[in-house]
């Protein structure tokens, strides 16, 4: 294998890119959750929040550009690294044994692509106009009604619930791995690193799950 010739051709550089693009996406996921929790404040609050996001088109498109770039960097680097790892061990062990790894870590290669599929579905469901859900016609301005109509259908709510579990697993290993990849291992934060990853993953899980479950239980109508 050829000696790497640039920062992003080294594995450490590629992992730093995974970590930084992941950090941008984690930031978005948390902000997205906090914004969406306004669904519990009623239609006016959520729809006003949705309008405010679009108030300055330049900002909206700047944020979208950062997110799109992060997704492209995250996915393309992941594919590159997965191929590299496969080439690094062409012949596996007859008997596999795991001593330290977690379920979340082992399933990153699966939870990642499934989340990409979910994001495509999620955008089609709630953002691209004209996607009918049952008899309901999507409204470009009444976000609250779109959410309630969508999550009232049990299988739609089910897809969101499954996706949030996958997201929580991906975030748990991703956040811990991000800190490690960026070299954040000061003795004062070595112990809290796992707890931070677990805490953020559970926070996002609880916040995001509350919306489809809230609609299903009739708390949000």
């Amino acid at each position: 294998m050829a000696q790497p010739t640039g920062f992003l051709s080294t594995t450490v550089g590629q992992k730093a890119l995974m970590a930084l693009s992941g950090l941008a996406l984690v930031g978005f996921v948390i902000a997205h959750m906090l914004g969406n929790l306004q669904v519990f404040l009623g239609p006016e609050a959520l729809n006003a929040y949705a309008r405010s996001l679009r108030a300055v088109p330049a900002l909206l498109w700047a944020a979208r550009a950062v997110l799109l770039l992060s997704v492209v960097a995250h996915v393309s680097t992941a594919i590159r690294l997965v191929q590299r790892a496969a080439a690094a061990r062409p012949q596996g062990y007859r008997q596999a044994h795991h001593a330290a790894t977690t379920y979340a870590a082992r399933t990153m290669k699966i939870s990642g692509p499934l989340l990409a599929l979910f994001i495509a579905y999620h955008l089609a469901h709630l953002t691209f106009p004209g996607v009918a859900m049952g008899g309901y016609i999507h409204s470009p301005t009444d976000v609250y009604a779109n959410v309630v109509a969508g999550f009232s259908i049990p299988w739609v709510a089910g897809i969101y619930v499954v996706a949030q579990v996958l997201l929580a697993l991906h975030l748990y290993h991703g956040i811990w791995s991000m800190l490690q990849s960026l070299g954040a291992s000061h003795p004062r934060i070595v112990q809290p690193r796992r707890a931070l990853a677990q805490g953020l993953a559970l926070l996002v899980l609880a916040g995001n799950l509350s919306i489809p479950i809230g609609v299903q239980l009739g708390v949000v109508r």
Binding site: M1, T10, A87, A100, R106
Partner: peptide, 19 residues
């Protein structure tokens, strides 16, 4: 790091199996 990559080893995904 460059030599490690040049030898064809994989990257670190922080599983902790090594430790």
């Amino acid at each position: 790091v460059a030599r490690m990559d040049g030898e064809g080893f994989g990257h670190c995904t922080n599983h902790g199996e090594c430790e």
